[in-house]
Design a protein around this nucleic acid. Structure first.
Length: 492
RNA sequence: GGCAUCGUGGCCGAGGGGCUAGGCACCGGUCUGCAAAACCGUCUACUCCGGUUCGAAUCCGGACGAUGCCUCCA
């Protein structure tokens, strides 16, 4: 029997602002769409947080036995830099700067994005469609919206008529905005726009002569509006009405609001049951954003090549750090917080690796079933990874107690404990055991072990001058010796 | 200016009317030739001012502050 039959998930639905019991449209199956990156530069850490948040959702749903179709797009069509008609396509701009073809930019940064997510051990989505691969579908939707009277054409561009739409529908439902307020608060643009109202948004834009990325359409040679691609691709792969739509908090308005409007204007369907928004990662208290330069690249963290951190950090440690905060909370990135996370992570992994060394007894002095359910409870409560991690530390404490013979466990429970821990640490959180992979291999390891043996001989002879010299000089190179009951180990 | 979200101990972060997570640091202890590492223990906090309540960090109102969105952004 699938686990999901016993575990009831609650999801915070951005549109109702409440936690709601999750009930998929089709029992046992989940359709999830997440807005992916615009591939015009290296993916930054803030982007990664959002995708890691939804990776957790994907992994947990999978763990529970749901059949999940997870669609995450790549925005490669390029969109205007500002709202004025003369704005330049960002991908084209980047291409001009780097003197390469626009699709070369797209290719380069798509690869970077995939590499980075792989380092974080994020699962690839089930389908990863591109905007440029769905121009036909987007044109099809525009035609329908025009036919339904919620869009108008002007000078080869097509705009969504927000005021008209709002007469019969509710524009602003998701973001809690009121169209009348928006109209009164909007400052006038320079009057260059073809739009009837500043709130209207483009479904299709006629391309200026210098614009490289362009496709033919009934209205002009041009390119689709940004909001449209998600409507087209989510509809194509998940249907007109699907379960979960996710994205960064910054996409709530206008992007997701416009998606809802487009879907309703297209087919009178509320497209999404559960809207999920992952909160921002801040750096120095400010949102990380490519456009402002306030960002740090994942690779700069992994290599240590940056001005913010004192040392390199492994991707899995960065991920663990992120999961110690709830996805709906703003999280501030700092050296101190990362170092604290790294130590905690090491403690957890060490406890996990000690499971095999535990003594077996006739009784278990701990309620394993309650603990296990508390892990599920944490995740069921809107994917509360910080509480899950707290529960994992409870298990670590218990493991250490058994090791010190202050608690006991049976063979059967030991297996159960290991299976549950393994499921949550590796399967659900998607963490990796980096320590056991890296340090104990190769010639370096042999050399260090040789020195360890020499030191231990010196210690046995009470030649502490020599033994301390070996220890201290290794430490100066960056190799730390750890004396334990079962001998001496080292970490780099 | 409008719309949101948030303000928790030295730091990071959960929780969300009485049962008061977790991690890191500090301090104390076990271990050690001494250390380090590891493990154990300790540390009781919710911006301010009113209100509701037997009881508020938690609910309501206000003030102050922070952040996000209102233009492309995860």
């Amino acid at each position: 029997m699938s686990l999901f039959k016993n575990q009831n998930i609650k999801i915070y639905n951005s549109i109702s602002k409440n936690k709601e019991v999750f009930k998929p449209i089709n029992e046992g199956a989940v359709g999830m769409y997440v807005c992916g990156p615009t591939v015009y530069s290296n993916v930054h850490l803030g982007n990664c947080r959002t995708f890691l948040s939804f990776d957790l959702v994907f992994r947990y749903l999978n763990h529970l036995g749901y059949k999940v179709r997870y669609v995450r797009n790549i925005t490669d069509a390029g969109h205007l830099e500002n709202d004025a008609d003369s704005g330049e396509d960002r991908i084209a701009k980047k291409a001009r700067i780097e003197e390469i073809e626009p699709m070369e930019v797209v290719q380069r940064y798509t690869i970077d994005f995939h590499n980075t997510m792989a380092k974080f051990n994020a699962l690839p989505p089930s389908i990863e469609p591109t905007a440029t691969g769905h121009i036909v579908e987007q044109i099809g939707i525009i035609k329908e919206i025009l036919k339904n009277g919620f869009a108008y054409e002007k000078n080869g561009s097509v705009y969504f008529d927000v005021l008209k739409f709002n007469e019969s529908h509710h524009y602003g439902r998701l973001s809690g905005r009121n169209l009348e307020d928006m109209v009164t608060n909007t400052r006038e643009l320079d009057g260059q726009s073809d739009k009837k109202n500043p709130q209207d948004f483009a479904l299709w834009k006629k391309a200026e002569p210098q614009h490289i990325m362009r496709w033919p359409s009934p209205w002009s040679d041009g390119f689709p509006g940004w909001h449209l691609e998600c409507t087209a691709m989510s509809t194509k792969y998940l249907g007109e009405h699907f379960d979960i739509h996710g994205g960064g908090m910054d996409l709530k308005f206008p992007h997701h609001e416009c998606e809802i409007a487009q879907s309703e204007a297209y087919n009178e369907q509320n497209p999404v049951n559960y809207w999920m928004h992952a909160n921002m990662l801040t750096l120095n208290g400010q949102k990380m954003a490519k456009s402002t330069g306030n960002n740090i690249l994942p690779n700069e963290i992994f290599t240590g090549n940056n001005t913010i951190l004192s040392k390199p950090f492994n991707p899995t440690v960065v991920k663990f750090f992120m999961y110690q905060a709830h996805y709906r909370s703003i999280l501030d990135f700092s050296n101190d917080a990362l170092e604290a996370a790294e130590k905690g992570y090491n403690r957890l992994m060490e406890a996990f690796n000690n499971i095999g060394k535990l003594p077996i007894e006739a009784k278990t002095s701990w309620n394993l079933e309650d603990w296990k359910q508390s892990c599920y409870d944490a995740m069921n409560d809107d994917f509360n990874s910080p509480i899950l991690i707290a529960q994992l530390f409870e298990a670590a404490k218990f493991i250490n107690a058994v090791k010190d013979q202050k608690a006991t466990i049976t063979e059967k429970d030991l297996e159960g404990l290991k299976a549950t821990l393994s499921a949550f640490i590796f399967e659900v959180l998607g963490l990796q055991d980096v320590d056991s992979e890296s340090s104990n291999t190769g010639k370096l390891s042999d050399i260090v072990n040789l020195l360890i043996n020499l030191r231990n001989e010196a210690r046995a002879n009470k030649d502490f001058a020599t033994s301390d010299k070996i220890r201290d000089e290794l430490a100066a190179i960056g190799i730390q010796l750890k004396d334990g009951k079962e001998g001496t180990t080292f970490i780099l």
